[in-house]
Amino acid sequence: MKIAVSAQGKTLDSSLDPRFGRAAYILVVDTETLEFEAFDNGNNKNAFKGAGIQAAAMVSDKNAEVLLTGFCGPNAFQTLDAAGVKVVSDQSGRVIDVIQKFKQGGAVYAEGANKDGHW
């Protein structure tokens, strides 16, 4: 399964970026092989509006089924939800550790945004 993780760097060793729309990178990882692609989210990071929406559309585009992140705003959540991408929020730590934990199962999928809209 492919999952997306918001990350501060472009490797699995880097820390998870608690922000989603404004994360430095978004890593799309194959949970079986741990092969991954890193997408520079720099354009979005500096966007003032709609960053979460654009990041969400990108995650869907890369065929990720789940997003692991810290905080997910209402617009991003709505977009991910519409795209059928499940969200696990309130995550922190190294990307690799977060993925390993996710693989153990029992992840709680978010039912909504866990952060207010951004301006």
């Binding site: 709609g50 929406i53 559309a57 617009n75 709505q78 977009t79 519409a82």
Partner: peptide, 18 residues
């Protein structure tokens, strides 16, 4: 340029506020 549209695989979302 306002990020008000999200084109997904089978849906397009419009964020009117943006």
């Amino acid at each position: 340029r306002y990020g008000a549209l999200a084109v997904l695989k089978k849906d397009v979302l419009v964020f009117e506020n943006l």
